[in-house]
Simulated scan of single mutants.
Amino acid sequence: MDPLPLVDQHCHGVLRDGPHDRAGFEALLTESHAPPAPGTSFFDTQLGFAVRRWCAPVLGLEPHCAPEAYLDRRSALGTPEVTRRLLRAARVRTFLVDTGLPGDLLAPEELAAAGGGTAREIVRLEPLAERAAAGARGADAFLAALGAAIGTAAGTAAAFKSVAAYRYGLDLDPRPPAPAELWTAATRWLASGRTGRLTDPVLLRHLMWSAARTGLPLQVHTGFGDPDLRLHRADPLLLTDFLRAVEPTGCRVVLLHGYPFHRNAGYLAAVHPHVYADVGLTLGHTGARAEAVLSEMLELAPFGKLLFSTDAHGLPELYLTGAQLFRQAMARLSTRFTGDGSWSRADADRVAALLAAGNARRLYGLDD
């Protein structure tokens, strides 16, 4: 049986070259900014084990080979060949690529060419605002440039994304800022010299509301990530009042990642018609426990509102592990649910296809 075709509804580019040493590779197996503790390795994680299980055979090695052997083979093949092999093995048909991360990464069209698929861009709001501010003289000019930039992006993007969870937290005032409040916040930020990232809660709210009014889906980071965020302020339940307030705009909101609040995201998708939830990042990092986590997401979330993604970044390995862990978890759950008579086989196949690609195609208006 052919693997489930996938739409990766949230991912990032992979490195154009490298990484060239073990430390650089391991740094991309973790959300931590720090090296592993002395005497330990990030290969000794669920994700590290998944890489050796699923990626080694694609590079011509035995599953679970030693990390040193894996990295030696990777180096011998070279980055372009490794990227091509691993992306093709993932069998992702469509990549929705968040282009907001720094680094020498493949652009969406390059990623799609390497993987044998197609790509669309997800526009990250906060860097868009930072670019709009770079040459602006005064709050009025900045806000006008920002509005124009969002409008232009909406013409080609598949969706917008907010990382307010990193920049401030999700415990934002749910209302759109009043004009005077917005102008004051813009003036204050511009006067600060704009030397750091945009963290002003008023401007972050403005970005989310501006994106919501374009008619495109809005993806919002929730749950775990790197140490820039405070996890207790990344619980999607903190968005409850915003979700209620934004519903009349018609905006569809996608709650990314979620873990360890993935059940909360599933609840919000269950009770709000415009809210969707995503399994990305979580399944890759939970590895052999991906089946348990996916099962928890399937407890309350409507099956037509859960979306597959990898949240892969930097390493093509993260595409393949994310894809394979999802397929394996979905297959095992389907077998269990059909085996005890809870689901019919026809329904199990239909639900798997919805999560893998169907829901994303409907939500983002993707062509077959």
Rank of each mutant, 00 (worst) to 15 (best):
D2H: 14
P3E: 08
P3W: 03
L4F: 07
L6T: 14
C11G: 08
V14C: 13
R16W: 04
D17K: 13
D17A: 15
H20A: 04
D21W: 06
F25R: 08
T30C: 01
T30D: 02
P36V: 11
F42N: 12
F43N: 06
A50W: 00
W54F: 14
C55Y: 03
V58K: 13
V58N: 03
L59V: 14
G60W: 09
P63N: 10
C65F: 08
P67Q: 11
A69R: 15
Y70K: 01
L71T: 01
R74V: 02
S75D: 13
A76F: 08
T79R: 15
V82H: 10
L87P: 03
A90E: 00
V92I: 15
R93E: 15
R93H: 12
F95K: 05
D98A: 04
D104K: 14
L105F: 02
L111Q: 05
A113M: 07
A119L: 05
R120M: 09
E121A: 13
A132D: 12
A132P: 13
G135W: 02
F142S: 00
F142V: 01
A149M: 03
T152W: 03
T156P: 04
T156E: 10
T156K: 13
A159P: 09
Y166K: 12
R167Q: 12
G169R: 05
L170F: 06
D171F: 00
P179L: 11
G196C: 07
R197L: 06
V202H: 04
L204T: 15
L204D: 14
L207Y: 08
W209L: 11
A211Y: 07
A212E: 06
P217Q: 07
V220N: 02
T222L: 05
D226A: 08
D226S: 14
L229Q: 06
L229D: 00
L238N: 05
L238Q: 13
L238W: 04
L239Y: 05
R244E: 11
A245S: 09
R252D: 07
V254N: 01
H257P: 02
G258L: 05
P260Q: 03
N264H: 05
V275Q: 00
V275H: 00
D278P: 03
L281N: 07
L281G: 04
H285P: 07
G287N: 12
G287M: 08
A288S: 15
A288T: 14
R289F: 08
A290C: 09
E291V: 12
L294V: 08
L300M: 08
A301F: 00
A301M: 10
F303S: 14
L306I: 15
L306W: 10
D311M: 01
A312E: 00
H313M: 12
L315N: 07
P316T: 11
E317F: 14
E317T: 09
T321K: 01
G322M: 02
A323R: 00
A323E: 00
F326R: 02
Q328A: 15
M330S: 14
L333G: 12
G339Q: 04
G339L: 05
D340C: 09
G341P: 06
A348P: 05
R350S: 12
R350N: 09
V351G: 05
V351F: 10
V351M: 04
A353D: 07
L354N: 03
A357V: 11
G358V: 06
R362E: 15
G365Y: 06
